[in-house]
């Protein structure tokens, strides 16, 4: 599993791997929002946590269709499938690699980008905490979606259609916790729910993704 993880990380960082793409996309969305809603700083600081969450969610979506499609095209997927590594572990390694190359950088980038949105100083730790807690769920849910659509030509759009409704609970609890934290309200419930979704997704979805990969390889 380590071998696969390291290979995927290496592929992502090398030229054409698309490592910087989701980060750049995140930046662009955050820059575009003030153009859309106007420059008033109090509005921006109020909707800031939500914007960061939605932008991060869209940015993770961007690199999902590469998850298995590239290995499917060049024939690596059946060779990986016949290795001693079970497909469930393959899915988990892929999700982990995806998180390390998108979720983690997005979480770290959210704080500096918060400056652009005139975020309340109290909001910064909550943004970073909720994104750090929630983006692993986004990666693993997305990996399930990518496994589901691996055999479909031009499946990128379909992948978004399938994955976005699945992202709803993570987004709601994540953004809600960030917003409440920023306003100094009680955050335990949404934070625990967010952690629960992440833990549950990490524990169960690799099995669904592995099963779905097996069906797609048939």
């Amino acid at each position: 599993m380590k071998a696969l993880l390291l290979r995927d990380l290496r592929l992502a960082i090398r030229a054409g791997g698309g490592f910087g793409l989701s980060l750049a996309f995140f930046l662009i969305v955050v820059v575009l929002v003030p153009f859309g809603v106007g420059p008033e700083s109090d509005i921006l600081s109020r909707i800031g946590p939500g914007i960061l969450w939605v932008a991060a969610l869209l940015a993770t979506l961007l690199s999902l269709d590469r998850q298995f499609a590239l290995d499917h095209e060049d024939g690596a997927l059946p060779l990986i499938a016949t290795s001693p590594l079970p497909l469930e572990a393959v899915a988990l390694a892929k999700a982990l690699a995806h998180w390390l190359t998108t979720g983690l950088p997005l979480t770290l980038a959210a704080a500096p980008l918060g400056v652009l949105l005139n975020l309340d100083p109290a909001a910064y730790p909550w943004i970073v905490l909720t994104l750090g807690l929630g983006t692993p769920a986004l990666s693993v849910i997305g990996t399930f979606g990518a496994a589901l659509t691996v055999g479909i030509r031009r499946g990128g759009l379909l992948l978004s259609l399938l994955v976005l409704p699945l992202y709803v609970p993570t987004l709601i609890f994540g953004a809600e916790a960030a917003r409440r934290g920023a306003q100094g309200l009680e955050v335990a419930t949404p934070l625990l729910m967010l952690a629960g979704i992440t833990a549950g997704s990490l524990a169960l979805l690799p099995f669904a993704a592995g099963g779905v990969l097996r069906i797609n390889l048939r």
């Binding site: 409704p165 709803v168 609890f173 979704i197």
Partner: peptide, 8 residues
């Protein structure tokens, strides 16, 4: 999950 999330 969404149902509960939305209720919350």
């Amino acid at each position: 999950l969404s149902r509960y999330a939305v209720l919350f």
